[in-house]
Design a protein around this nucleic acid. Structure first.
Lengths: 344, 344
DNA sequence: TTGTATGCGTTATCAG
DNA sequence: CTGATAACGCATACAA
């Protein structure tokens, strides 16, 4: 079985190479009969067009580059997985790169991808403050961490946070605290705003305003635990009955803090997370959370890059609505008779 | 800034295109002086060789394909990240694909990679029993889940397990249970063997043989919790004082089970995991575990594919030694006065 | 050592 | 609608 080329196919089918090429690219001007015959021969010979020769001429690589700060973050891992699936469905493959949250490495990766002549780039920018330089003429779209001067697609973090806090308020909670993300992070700030959106107009059973209470923390597990410990270290009468965490990892850490303090879940405390990472549905109790529609987000990013969907204009990112997944870490607040309060 | 070609560089440097090509490929027969001049021009013009034209001629793509079952498994995510870094250091890029643990999808991905003409393939085979068909002439290496008829590289799971159990035995533990992995999984069985290797010759303080005790469970969190609950649900006098889990996720689930049962760690129970995933060092208590040398494993896989290291022969996979990371989830067993036992 | 010329496998531009 | 043929950008055998 020697190396098959387009020439062999043409010869075997009794046509010219140009015709075979036209069949390959679904060019309309080919007789159905000829098309069928050529396709038959292609199948028979097991012919596969050489992607390099093809790209050299056509200037398209059917390759998408994706740059992520850190794949050990389960949220990004899911993004990559979804992006690969979406790209695959559009006949494209994915070149994966990690920036390790370093601006210099990120720039290098971008240059490499440009050199590879990928058809488009998906990037979650590194956190270090910087401007990413998109190789001119190369479609690039940011995901999750939006940047002002690049098109982007993300979950509607603010609206998602609102849903979470409204849910808790609807359950009857009033002392609702928030573990905010790190200041400086766009998604973190959006989520905090969503929390405040709901808290501000909220009134307790006596019609008095309720005080928002939040503390900044990194998105990871340990920071969430520390923040939770801080928020829960107060007399029961003042202690939050519910906590909205800005990430599932924070929420899981907070859950641990509650456990260490002997606070039963969800009886003594409700916790709602954000992201919907797989682990959130595996722990005990299973975490109530706001799940980001990652498949849709990834598909929007891919589709936009490939021109099958309009690129979101600068400053007007494509926003996707999140969904509340009610699980086991949340419930109505328990009644707090004055006697119990006094007994502390 | 028009499109730069090798021709432009040659012209600007006053040499022939062939010479430029030779400089590009570090061909020895080029005067240092000429080489320097050409390189200067290349830099000045910002010239980048077209990867397609180059690959078409040279038959190498500088692309490595990697296929894994599921990126939401943090262990595989780390593997991908390490592989990308290693490939990058060798001047290669990585095309990432997910098989979703499905043999059919896996075969499709493999075919795609072959079509892309990658220089080599790294694969963690899907769990469904099957034979993967490596496109002939395309270097392929399996990682972690070894297959009999393909070269492979992995951690020495058996030896690693031995280190874990020896550590526990050295601490004074005798009732050491094991949460084994799913039967049918090669890494799982190796780890179980390592456990048994240490347990069999073990004797208690009266010189009596100690009974191995293990239960099979999937590698995930919830299965680990269930297994832990099962193992710990017995009178204290019979209850294991230490548990060796076959994965960190299992260990973390088991940790949760102990917590739910009110067993303090590490005073009442020592737990050791396996893998060394990032999360293992973030939880409370931080998990004592066997960490796999993922960077080395990934680098060995990449180096072997690129011919910079000898391909491990069939049936003789490259094995890497794991390292014990002693953290907070393990300690010497507490004394068990008869009085305490009787009080139950 | 360096220049020249051919070919790699496709696509695209022309005629026919 | 189809065939012939010229690029595409680079590597390499061969000539100088």
């Amino acid at each position: 079985m020697a190396k098959r080329g387009i020439k062999d196919v043409a010869e075997r089918a009794g046509v010219a190479v140009g015709t075979v090429s036209r069949v390959l690219n679904d060019h309309p001007s080919v007789t159905a009969e000829v098309r069928a015959r050529v396709k038959a021969v292609i199948h028979e010979l097991g012919y596969r067009p050489d992607p390099f020769a093809r790209s050299m001429r056509s200037k398209v690589s059917r390759l998408i580059g994706i740059v992520i700060p850190d794949l050990t973050n389960p949220f990004f891992a899911e993004l990559v997985q979804c992006a690969e699936r979406a790209a695959s469905e559009h006949g494209h493959n994915v070149i994966f790169m990690s920036s390790f949250d370093d601006a210099a490495k990120e720039a290098d990766r971008l240059a490499q991808l440009a050199g590879r002549k990928v058809d488009g780039i998906i990037i979650v920018p590194s956190n270090s403050p910087h401007a990413i330089k998109a190789p001119k003429g190369l479609p690039l779209i940011t995901v999750d961490r939006l940047l002002p001067d690049h098109p982007g697609v993300a979950a509607d973090h603010r609206a998602g946070a609102r849903v979470a806090v409204e849910y808790l308020a609807g359950l009857g909670h009033r002392r609702i605290a928030c573990i905010a993300g790190p200041s400086g992070s766009r998604p973190a700030e959006d989520r905090l705003q969503g929390y405040l959106d709901v808290m501000r107009p909220l009134r307790d059973h006596r019609g008095a305003k309720v005080e928002p209470l939040f503390v900044n923390a990194a998105f990871d597990y340990e920071s969430g635990r520390a923040a939770g410990t801080f928020l829960l270290a107060r007399p029961r009468a003042e202690r939050p009955t519910a906590i909205f965490a800005s990430s599932d990892q924070q929420a899981i850490g907070c859950l641990r803090a509650a456990n260490d303090l002997g606070i039963p879940l969800p009886a003594g405390l409700s916790i709602v997370g954000f992201d919907g990472i797989p682990l959130s549905n595996l722990i005990t109790p299973r975490l109530t959370t706001i799940v980001q529609p990652m498949p849709e987000i990834a598909d929007a990013a891919i589709s936009s890059l490939l021109g099958r969907r309009k690129m979101p204009p600068l400053g007007k990112p494509d926003l996707f609505q999140c969904e509340l997944a009610v699980r086991e870490s949340s419930a109505e607040p328990v009644l707090e008779p004055a006697a119990i309060n006094a007994s502390r």
